Simulated scan of single mutants.
Amino acid sequence: MTNDESAVRRLVRDRYADAASEGCCGGTETSCCGGDDGTSDTASDAAEIAREIGYDDEAIETVDGEANLGLGCGNPTAIADLEPGETVLDLGSGGGFDCFLAAREVGPEGRVIGVDMTPEMIEKARANARANDAGNVSFRLGEIEHLPVADGVVDTIISNCVVNLSPAKDRVFEEAYRVLRPGGRLAITDPVRTDSLPESVREDPGSLAGCISGAESPERIASLLEAAGFIDIRVELDPDSREVIDEWHDEYDLGGSLLSARIEAEKPVE
C-alpha cells in the first residue's frame, strides 16, 4: 500500500467514524448526505435522503435502530433481484441499512455479510442487528480491497456509494470477483463522473471523503470490471439523481458532472 493510499484510507475512516457517532457524515459541509449542517433532526434527514435516492417508505420504516445514516446515492437492493436462501455481501456496509433490507429478501435460510473498515461503524451495525433481531446478518471489520471472505461463497454483492472512496478500485473488483460463486452477480450503486471536475475539487480532501472526487467515468468502471473478469457489464446512469448529488458540495456547483449509476456485472459460470 502506498503512502497516498494509506492517507486516503485514514481520511475516509475518520470521516465515517464521525458519521457513526453523529449521523449523516457527522454534519460535515461536504458529504454523501447532502451537506447537513448538523442543526436538524438527523433521523428525519436520513429518511428524507433515503426517499430521494430511491427507497420507499416501507423500506425506511421496516428497519429499526440507527441503521439508515443517509449516506447512499441509490438503492442497490432494488436492482439486485435477491432470492431466498442466497448469501449476500455488502461492501462498505455502514450502519447496516442495506444489509437488513437484503435480509428480508433472502429470508432465514439466507445470510448477509457486511464488511466495513471503520470500527465505529461495525459496532453501530452490530447494535442495529440486535435491534432488528437479524440473526442472519453479520458484520466483519475489513477493507473492501482485502475482503475477509472466503473464495466463491457469495451469490450477490451489493454496495451503496462506497467503491468511489477506494484508492484501488481495481483491487475492489478483483476481490469481488474472487468471493463470488461462478454465476454470481454484482449489483451496486455508486457516483460516476460524467464531466471533468475542477482541480480545486479534485485536490480537496473533503471532496474525496464526500464521494465526489473519487468517482470514475462509466467507461473506466466498465473497463475495471472487465479486467477483473466480469461479463454482462452494465453501467446505467440515473439522470434523476442530479438534483441530489449537486447538493453534495456547498462551494462548487457540480452542474451534473456527477450522477448516480446502477452498476451490474456477472461472474462467468465455469
Rank of each mutant, 00 (worst) to 15 (best):
G214I: 00
R181N: 09
C24P: 03
N68T: 08
L259Y: 00
T2I: 03
E175Q: 13
L197D: 03
R126Y: 06
G38V: 06
R242T: 04
G85E: 06
V172Q: 00
R10V: 12
G229D: 02
V269N: 07
D45G: 14
I221C: 06
L141C: 11
S159N: 00
A17E: 09
A265W: 02
A131T: 14
K169G: 06
V244T: 15
V12F: 07
D253T: 12
D240F: 02
G255D: 10
S159Q: 01
L11Y: 11
G255T: 01
A103F: 06
V154C: 06
A131R: 14
A261C: 03
G210V: 02
S217T: 13
E226G: 09
G65R: 01
R193Q: 09
D45S: 11
T189C: 11
N3Y: 14
N164S: 15
R178W: 00
A150G: 13
S31A: 15
A176K: 00
E29Q: 14
V115F: 09
R9I: 14
V269P: 05
T189S: 10
R234D: 15
D250H: 13
D190Q: 03
G23T: 01
A59E: 15
V112M: 14
L197M: 00
V63Q: 09
D64N: 12
G72S: 08
G135H: 15
I158G: 00
S40F: 06
D250V: 10
V149C: 08
S21E: 14
M1W: 11
N75A: 10
G27L: 11
E266A: 14
G85H: 09
L91Q: 02
R130S: 15
R15Y: 14
D155I: 06
P239I: 08
T2E: 07
S260E: 06
D232Q: 09
T118Q: 01
I49Y: 06
T77G: 05
E58G: 13
V112R: 15
R130I: 13
F100H: 13
I113V: 14
L165M: 07
L225R: 03
F97V: 08
C99D: 12
